[in-house]
Write a protein that binds this DNA or RNA. Structure first.
Length: 330
DNA sequence: CGGTTTTGACCCGCGC
DNA sequence: GCGCGGGTCAAAACCG
């Protein structure tokens, strides 16, 4: 794989150093990837031992983050709400850190991935019968992650989500879930008027998204746990930012129990774990059921371009986990 | 009222 | 140099 280069990341203050310290203990990236940049065949499904998940990741690494943090640049964001995100010619912010995920859309929307995105543009794409590509940027001001969502040319039911950049914070729901009171609040949070559909609704419902506990725990059990203790005194956002988890190499069994949701959401985009959580009905009303309705296409996600034999077929993994859960429920 | 989405305009890289 | 197309900006509209 091409060496991942430095992202353009702007840091505001000394707290970033703390973040760096936390990140240094993290082995898990925000997204599964990837050797995606190494090339391969999209859609190929292979079952790889779970233990390879972390090793298969070839996206931004801690080293990359450290390098990025070592290259401080003037903080444009801090001085102006309007900024033009620098797009380095080379580096993590560009092609090397792109992860294309193909996912079958259920219900006309795109799946949640655990992060909060703000749409900043939309373009019609030439040679694509499907109307447009949407551009999203992570709402976390410290985060330079972006993603593009477009429908596949071949199959309008397939969404191609291209992630670009690196999340330097927890997924949003991770924070919600980590606090018992938040969890309760989330559980009771039901939108009064689910109106929007598809991707739009996704963003609206984002804050009410909760973890589908049972499956999540199953998946975590076969992948990786999270050991960062977290600080109950920190605010949500701060906790999300400064406490991005810890690597499984540091994990103790008790940690997995304490934080059953683990790092999964840090590692696997929720769209893969939960590709059908595309609307308010799913994300808001069914907090404790992985899928409210049968969704035959779940886990049809694949990392693209998949690359080499060490690629992970997360889909197969999670399908397996889901099957376990469904059998239990029967 | 603050955050998000929409959407036309603008910027910029690339190919010819 | 020019045109094209992808990516981003930014003001207005929308929404809770």
């Amino acid at each position: 794989m091409a060496q991942v280069k430095e992202p353009e990341i702007y840091w505001h203050d000394e707290s970033e150093k703390e973040l760096l310290g936390e990140l240094s203990a993290v082995a898990s990236p925000p997204f599964v990837s990837s050797k995606a940049a190494d090339g391969g065949t999209a859609g190929s499904l292979r079952h790889v031992p779970n233990t390879l998940i972390s090793s298969a990741y070839s996206g931004p690494t801690i080293e990359d983050i450290e390098r990025a943090l070592s290259t401080k640049v003037p903080d444009v964001r801090a001085t102006s709400h309007r900024y033009r995100a620098p797009v380095p010619e080379k580096g993590i912010g560009k092609s090397d850190s792109k992860y294309a995920v193909m996912i079958k859309s259920c219900g006309g929307g795109v799946a949640e991935d655990g992060y909060k995105w703000r749409k900043y543009g939309q373009k019609t794409i030439k040679n694509n019968p499907n109307p447009s590509r949407s551009y999203y940027r992570c709402t976390n001001p410290r985060c330079s992650a972006k993603r593009q969502v477009e429908r596949s040319k071949e199959d309008p039911n397939m969404l191609t989500i291209t992630y670009e950049g690196l999340h330097l914070h927890y997924p949003h729901f991770h924070v919600l879930r980590r606090r018992p009171q938040d969890h309760t609040a989330t559980k009771l949070q039901v939108p009064k008027k689910p109106k929007l559909q598809g991707e739009e609704q996704l963003h609206k419902d984002y804050k009410s998204q909760s973890i589908q506990g049972e499956l999540r725990e199953e998946v975590v059990a076969v992948t990786s746990g999270e050991s960062s203790p977290g600080s109950p005194d920190r605010g949500l956002e701060e906790e999300a930012t400064l406490n991005p988890g810890a690597g499984k190499q540091n994990m103790r069994p008790s940690d997995a129990v304490q934080h059953p949701q683990g790092l999964l959401q840090d590692v696997v985009p929720l769209l893969i774990r939960e590709p059908c959580s595309t609307g308010s009905a799913v994300s808001s009303y069914h907090h404790y059921h992985f899928f409210p309705t049968p969704c035959p296409s779940y886990y049809s996600a694949s990392i693209s371009p998949p690359t080499n034999p060490s690629d992970i077929d997360l889909g197969l993994h999670f399908r397996h986990s889901l099957n376990l859960k469904q059998s239990k429920d029967r």
